[in-house]
């Protein structure tokens, strides 16, 4: 089976919200989270989606 979509990274300011699964980046502030997400988006060639204000995921489509 070939996966069409995959979560490449998870970026959060609230470590309680996530456990293992993909690479997790825990940030202090929302600004830091956005910066990390923007960088990861460019590096991983994925799209950053906001699940909530404190949780972003990078998804490869």
């Amino acid at each position: 089976m070939q996966l069409e979509k995959a979560i490449l990274a998870t970026i959060t300011t609230n470590a309680k919200k996530v456990t293992a699964g993909s690479s997790i980046f825990i940030c202090e502030t929302k600004e830091e989270m956005e910066k990390v997400a923007a960088n990861l988006e460019a590096i991983l060639d994925g799209i950053s989606h906001a699940l909530s204000d404190e949780l972003y995921i990078i998804v490869k489509h």
């Binding site: 956005e34 950053s48 989606h49 995921i57």
Partner: peptide, 19 residues
């Protein structure tokens, strides 16, 4: 929120404010 809409049709979720 993070949802992009054209009229009332949902297009996609864009997380980054810059984007």
């Amino acid at each position: 929120g993070a949802g992009l809409y054209v009229d009332n049709i949902y297009i996609m979720n864009i997380g980054l404010p810059a984007r």
